[in-house]
Design a protein around this nucleic acid. Structure first.
Lengths: 203, 203
DNA sequence: CCTTCAGGTTAACGACCGCTAACCTCCCTG
DNA sequence: CAGGGAGGTTAGCGGTCGTTAACCTGAAGG
């Protein structure tokens, strides 16, 4: 029983490279030949692993949305399991931390996530939208526990705005322009997110 | 001398519709026939007004970047002209207000602005990048006057993040989900932006 | 040793897309 | 009232792209 001696699957290689290329040049801006070349095979060889170009994008987006939602649910459950009942502030911090890790470590995916959704087939798009909506609602619930004064539509807008803030990292300068290291960036984003929520919460 | 009795120019109509379509489906996802159809002419008729599809995108992006920069410079100059020398807090508020107006009133343009930059010819892309950089540096300067403790790279990252926050409005739900009205939204975004900067400024 | 099959290859097809060519038709103006 | 340019039209070309077809190959298994 050879447990985990293999590297990443071919499928996984393809998905990773496809994500990078889609994020860089847009779904319609990338040809299947380029995706193939990026993993060392060429063009139609991809069809041994995926039904088509659309299928790759669909799997990427469903995967991202699902991963975000699953991670968030786990974090909420962990906090709820604590001895003193759940502390909303801690849960919110944990959600923010999880989202930041994702944004910093999987930039191409975060980019795709809110950029190429409309290229999906109807059924896939509905699924992704549903996962995204559940993720947002989970945040809204926690935010309203921390800031009870917030009306629901306001809280939802605030959550979307903070997502915009946290997802802004891919837009940072490519050249050697000295930017904060990963940990400093995570801390900065976390503080700013809390500051933004706090300002929204004071009516 | 018929001053301004005319409606918008053909060119302006085309640019507006092209911006909407590019924002909705991506530059490569829109055909020239669709852009033509959106203004009531069909396909190649566009070439009486533009050298090509690329030229439309270029004009849009250069226009956006220039407008943002010009508006920001005007706001800084107005504040500097005041009797008591410039008040950095007021200038920052003015910059935020200007950016929010733009984000709320020209959503398609804001979307294009950080999404389709890489589809430009080298020279155009350099120009847009230069305009964007000047806009950012102008913000960074003001932010560091309000929060002197902020190191420059940190301030620049904070500015980018706040742009992400302010530009998040296009991602808000399409359906009838009750969302705040325009003015309430502007106020909320403004408060959150200030809150985010304030949190970034406290080391 | 023969078979099978996963995972490649190249060739090619059909659709689409950006753009040009050629032509038409008002409307303005000298 | 000629004529010319602004602003359309349709037909079609050349290239690209996603996908399929047909074929090849090396390794596993009975």
């Amino acid at each position: 029983m050879a447990t985990r001696t293999d590297g990443p699957t071919r499928r996984e290689q393809i998905l990773k490279e496809a994500a990078r290329l889609f994020a860089e040049r847009g779904f319609h801006g990338v040809g299947v030949d380029e995706i193939g070349a990026a993993v060392g095979i060429s063009g139609p060889g991809l069809y041994r692993h995926f039904a088509g170009k659309d299928a790759m994008l669909a799997e990427l987006l469903v995967g991202i949305s699902g991963q975000l939602l699953t991670g968030a649910r786990r974090r909420v459950a962990e906090a709820d399991g604590g001895p003193a009942g759940r502390n909303p502030e801690e849960v919110l911090d944990s959600l923010i931390e999880g989202h930041i890790d994702f944004a910093l470590d999987d930039r191409p995916l975060i980019t795709l996530h809110d950029r190429e959704l409309d290229r999906l087939r109807d059924s896939d798009r509905k699924l992704v939208r549903q996962l995204q909506r559940q993720y947002v609602e989970l945040w809204v619930e926690i935010v309203r526990e921390v800031y009870p004064g917030l009306a629901e539509p306001t809280a939802r807008s605030a959550v979307h705005s903070v997502f915009g803030l946290l997802n802004s990292t891919p837009h940072l300068g490519r050249p050697g322009s000295a930017l904060p290291g990963r940990d400093a960036m995570a801390t900065l984003l976390h503080r700013m997110a809390r500051g933004a929520f706090s300002a929204a919460g004071k009516d």
